[in-house]
Design a protein around this nucleic acid. Structure first.
Length: 157
DNA sequence: GCCAACGTTGGC
DNA sequence: GCCAACGTTGGC
């Protein structure tokens, strides 16, 4: 099983909305970056995901979700009215994929980016989301990073 | 294939 | 709102 981090802007879709969604599940559409797309392709059912809030008051990890459905073509790429429409994508060989994720647990508090950074020279020294200039919306997380962050969260409960 | 211009992300 | 960092596009 693998671990991931997926960014979402809470003003667009936050963990509260995931909690309220039918079956606490949502389709993660709109990814339009090749590297992120390749990670989507690697995701397996049951993989765990840190749900990260970006571009907001307190950027950080808001909870845990799990991959419910593995990669399938993102229909928004063929919808001319959609912001993520891609005229260059061929329906017989769709360029963009999406997965479905289900909420596992909303954290009692957001594990803020600030707090994660405190460990940027230690346990989280290789964490991609802490790297300068990182903009990738989907990144792999190592098992040790995952366990450490969960311990941070547990310690505060 | 290079690289300047442009658009986007996302923290601050 | 600013701006650094990065991906993509398109001219050559």
């Amino acid at each position: 099983m693998n671990y991931w981090l997926m960014k979402s802007e809470p003003s667009v879709f936050g963990i509260e909305q995931l909690a309220k969604a039918k079956n606490s599940t949502t389709g993660w559409d709109g990814v339009r970056n090749f590297q992120a797309r390749n990670y989507l392709k690697e995701m397996k059912q049951g993989d765990l995901v840190f749900f990260y809030h970006s571009s907001c008051e307190i950027p950080g990890i808001a909870g845990v979700a799990a991959v419910q459905r593995e990669a399938y073509p993102d229909p928004t790429q063929f919808d001319k009215k959609n912001d993520h429409y891609d005229a260059a994508s061929d329906p017989s060989s769709p360029r963009w994929l999406m997965v479905d994720v289900k909420l596992v647990r909303k954290f009692d508090r957001v594990i803020a980016l600030d707090e994660l950074r405190k460990h940027a020279d230690g346990k989280l020294k290789d964490m991609i989301v802490l790297k300068r200039g990182n903009r990738l919306s989907i990144t792999p997380v190592t098992k040790s990073e995952w366990s450490f962050i969960e311990s941070l969260e547990r310690a505060s409960r």
